[in-house]
Design a protein around this nucleic acid. Structure first.
Lengths: 222, 222
DNA sequence: AGCAAGATGAACCCATGGGTTCAATAGCTA
DNA sequence: TAGCTATTGAACCCATGGGTTCATCTTGCT
C-alpha cells in the first residue's frame, strides 16, 4: 500500500505513468514533511526522518524540493490551503439562510465547526510551526495568514453583510464584525487550551462557541 | 574594562561584594539570553553568542545555568514576569474609578496600554519564543501563560466585577467578560499586525482599542 | 602577603544533521 | 530487447554547536 499499487489501474492509457508516480511521490513527501515538522519543529526535524516517513530515499527528497527550507514552505502552504478550504466551508453554511431560520443556531453551528478546525491536529501544528518561524521566515507567516486568516475574514464578512442587509443584524461594518466574531471565538480557545497544548472536551468547545455567539449577538443583533 | 565598574559604588558596606557581583552576572546572562533567543530562536541561538552578549565567558554561563534549556526557561520566565507586571499595572488603572468618570475613556486607556505592551519588543519576542517551543517544552507554555495570561485575566475580572456591582456594567460573569474584552483587543491586533511581524502605527493601535471597547460596551454596558 | 572562589579563553570531544556523490537497479517507452 | 529516467541506499564531507577541561588570571577577604 505504499506507493506501487497506489495509482489504481496500472498504466492506464492516456497519461504517462512515470510522471504520475513522480507526482504521487512529491505529494507523499510534502505530507510526510508536514507530519515530521509538526512532530519535531523545523530545526529538530531531519530530512532523513522525512524521507523515511514518506517511504522514500533521501536523495529523492532533494530531487523534488531543493532544500529543507523549500520543503518547509511548500509543506506549510499545502497544509494552509487544506485548512482554508475547511474554514471556508464552515462559513459558507451561513449562505442562503432562510428568513425565519434560527440565526443564533446557525452562527453557533459555524462557530462550532471553526473551533474544531482550529483545534484539529493540522490546525494546531500549522499554527505552531508558523509562529515558531516568524523570526526566520517572516514572509511565510504572510503566506499562511493570507490563506487561513484573511480569506476567512473576508468570507465571513460577506456573510455578515448579507445578514445585516436582511435585517437580521444591525447595520455595521462587516469586516469589523467578522474580526470581532472570530476574536470572540478563537482567543478564548487559545487561552483555555493553553495554545492548544491541553485538549478541550467537545462540551467545552461548544460552550466557548455559545458564549462567543451570545456576546456577538448582544453587540451586533438587529 | 567590562565588568569591573559595573556594581556602582565599589564595596558598599553591608553585603558581601563577591556574591553581589556574581548575582549581577547571573542577571546579565539571563537578559543576554533573552535578547539572543529573541534574535535567533531557540535552536539557532548558540551559547557562545549569549556569553558574548553578556560580556562573559562561556564556562561562566554554564556555571550559572546548567544547560541551554535551563537558560531558556529562566530567561523566558523572567521576561514573562516583567511583562506581567506591566499588564497588571495597566489593569489597575481601572481601580477606584470615580462614579461619574467616563467608563469608555477608562477602558480605552487600559486597552491602549495593553496593546502597546503586547506589541512591544519584549511582548512579541516572548510570544514567538513561547509558541515556537510549544512542542518541545509544553510545560514552559504553561508557566508563561500563567504569568501573562491567567493573572491578567483574573485581575481584569476583578475590576469588571466591581464595575458591574457599581452598576456601570450589566450583571455578568466577570471571568467571561474579561476573556471577551481581551479577545476583542488582542485577536484583531494579531491579525492586523500579522502576528507582530508588521508594525502598526500608534493611530491604528488606538483604533483597535476603540473598536474593541465599543463592541465590548455594546455587549456589556449596563 | 596569602588564600579561596570565581572568571577567563582557548582548545578540545563528539553528536547531529544538511547536502552530495555514486554505482546499482527498477520501470516505463519504443 | 535496448535505452532512458527516476529511485535507491550507503557512504561521505563538512559546518555547527552543546558541553567540558584546564591552566591561568583576577578579586575580595583575612
Amino acid at each position: 500500500m505504499s506507493s506501487a499499487a497506489s495509482s489504481g489501474g496500472s498504466g492506464g492509457p492516456g497519461g504517462p505513468g512515470g510522471a504520475r508516480k513522480r507526482a504521487d511521490k512529491r505529494q507523499a513527501i510534502l505530507e510526510a514533511a508536514f507530519t515530521v515538522f509538526a512532530r519535531r519543529g523545523y530545526a529538530q526535524a531531519c530530512v532523513q526522518e522525512i524521507a523515511q516517513e514518506a517511504r522514500v530515499a533521501k536523495p529523492t527528497v532533494y530531487s523534488h524540493l531543493n532544500d529543507k527550507e523549500t520543503l518547509f514552505r511548500h509543506a506549510l502552504e499545502a497544509a494552509a490551503d487544506a485548512l482554508a478550504a475547511e474554514n471556508l466551508a464552515a462559513v459558507e453554511r451561513l449562505r442562503d439562510l432562510a428568513p425565519d431560520a434560527d440565526l443564533r443556531a446557525a452562527l453557533t453551528g459555524t462557530a462550532d465547526r471553526l473551533l474544531r478546525i482550529c483545534g484539529s491536529e493540522r490546525g494546531r501544528a500549522l499554527k505552531w510551526l508558523t509562529y515558531a518561524q516568524v523570526g526566520t521566515f517572516p514572509d511565510l507567516v504572510d503566506a499562511v495568514l493570507e490563506r487561513t486568516g484573511r480569506r476567512l475574514g473576508t468570507a465571513l464578512a460577506d456573510r455578515l453583510a448579507r445578514l445585516s442587509l436582511a435585517g437580521r443584524l444591525r447595520p455595521c461594518a462587516p469586516e469589523q464584525a467578522a474580526e470581532h466574531f472570530l476574536a470572540l471565538l478563537t482567543a478564548p480557545y487559545e487561552a483555555r487550551s493553553a495554545l492548544g497544548t491541553r485538549p478541550l472536551p467537545a462540551t467545552a468547545l461548544h460552550g466557548l462557541a455559545e458564549a462567543a455567539v451570545d456576546t456577538f449577538l448582544l453587540a451586533y443583533a438587529a
